[in-house]
Amino acid sequence: MLREFLHNWNPIVEPVAGPRQSGALPYAIVEGRVVFLLVTSRRTGRWIFPKGSISAGMTAWDSAAKEALEEAGVIGEIGTEPVGTYRNTDKGLLVDIDLYPLRVGEQFDSWDEMDQRLRHWVLLAEARRLLADRSLVRIAELLHRQLTSRRITS
């Protein structure tokens, strides 16, 4: 019981003053259903969404789109408002990561980090099972609710 509580516990905390990162939450609508694109992290092999440091001279959302291209080999329409923010550690420092929705328009057969990562399209139920970070699950659920409440089907 306690283990389950701690596994799902995510206190609301103030943003960290310091470095921020941005990431993409790649999705597509297939036969009226929302699907998400996950990638594995290079260090742990856990399923995540593409993310990284914000590139100099780029907006956070453009940097997120760049990460999606490099890590997952996809391009598309990136949102300019994050769908959610989660906290992670990077080299021992706490970092807040803003995730921007990316409606995938094209997927490439080869991409920069294809030899370092796997990618996998999933429905929300499988995303819940594969994403170890519960914050990522909550953000995916939020985007799913937003998309399905608008009844996006194309």
Rank of each mutant, 00 (worst) to 15 (best):
D112M: 13
E67K: 13
R150P: 03
E126W: 06
V39Y: 07
E106G: 01
L69A: 07
A28M: 15
T153S: 14
A24C: 01
P82K: 10
A65F: 04
E4Y: 12
D109A: 14
L38Q: 08
D115Y: 15
R151I: 13
N10C: 08
A56C: 10
M114K: 14
H144L: 09
L94T: 04
G105N: 05
V95H: 01
R151A: 14
D90Q: 08
V104L: 08
N8I: 01
M58H: 13
G79M: 00
I29Q: 06
E106L: 04
T44Q: 08
L143Q: 07
I48S: 03
G84E: 07
I139D: 00
S149R: 01
V83N: 08
V95F: 02
I54L: 09
G32V: 11
A65Q: 03
M1C: 14
L25K: 02
W9G: 05
I139W: 00
Y100E: 00
E141A: 02
E14R: 08
N88Y: 06
I97T: 06
H144D: 13
R3K: 15
L93M: 00
W61Y: 14
E113V: 06
S41E: 12
L25H: 02
R3F: 12
E77D: 05
D112R: 11
K91Y: 04
E141G: 05
E106P: 03
R103K: 12
S41L: 14
P50A: 09
Y86H: 03
K91D: 04
E77N: 02
L99W: 12
P82L: 11
K51Y: 07
A125W: 15
E81I: 03
T148F: 05
V35S: 12
L37C: 07
R151P: 12
Q146D: 12
V104H: 06
I139R: 03
E70P: 10
L147M: 08
A60P: 05
V35N: 14
E113K: 06
R33M: 11
R87H: 11
E31S: 14
T89R: 10
V95K: 06
V16D: 02
K66F: 06
D90F: 12
M58S: 15
A140T: 02
T44F: 13
T40M: 09
Q107I: 06
K51V: 03
I78R: 00
L123F: 14
A64R: 00
E71W: 01
L147W: 01
K66C: 07
A17Y: 02
D133T: 11
L118D: 15
E31P: 10
H120C: 12
Q107M: 12
N8E: 07
L6P: 09
F49S: 01
R138N: 06
A140M: 00
D115F: 15
